[in-house]
Amino acid sequence: MRFMPIFLAAMWVFAATAHAQGEAPEFYDFDTQAEEQRFRGLIAELRCPKCQNQNIADSNAPISKDMRDQVYLLMQSGATDDEIVGALVDRFGEFVKYKPPVDRRTILLWGFPAIAVFGGFMIVAGVVIRSRKQSPEPALSAEEQARVRQMLADRDPSSRS
């Protein structure tokens, strides 16, 4: 633990220099605002295979830059969104899509929220139904009530005659 501050300082210096060494900001030319929006949308939903938890828009890994360039080139050549994403999936696998397709392998992934909500609903419904069933039942049978009355009468001196 003594070395923690040194370690953190080293990390900070490393992070700072790594950032400074990062490539100069890149510029992509678009004819229209809509094209630029489309590009931003595409690179936001593609995942960097190297950094795993970043999209290629945010990541400054070299591979992300290559992928952005490729998206740009494919856009300029008139490819559709599906073709562009498909070209990258063919190289890097389904991993690069933040939105996995709905198919046999991913059906549980997509269906789980609905299953969880349904399951939760069933549990709540079960608890409610059971508690409803129990409450109207008289706590004591007629015979027991008579006994209680008898016992209370026995204890109450005023009723004794």
Partner: peptide, 12 residues
């Protein structure tokens, strides 16, 4: 330029 690397899906 890493062109074949890119086509092979090399990321590291």
């Amino acid at each position: 330029r890493g062109s074949l690397g890119f086509d092979l899906g090399v990321y590291g």
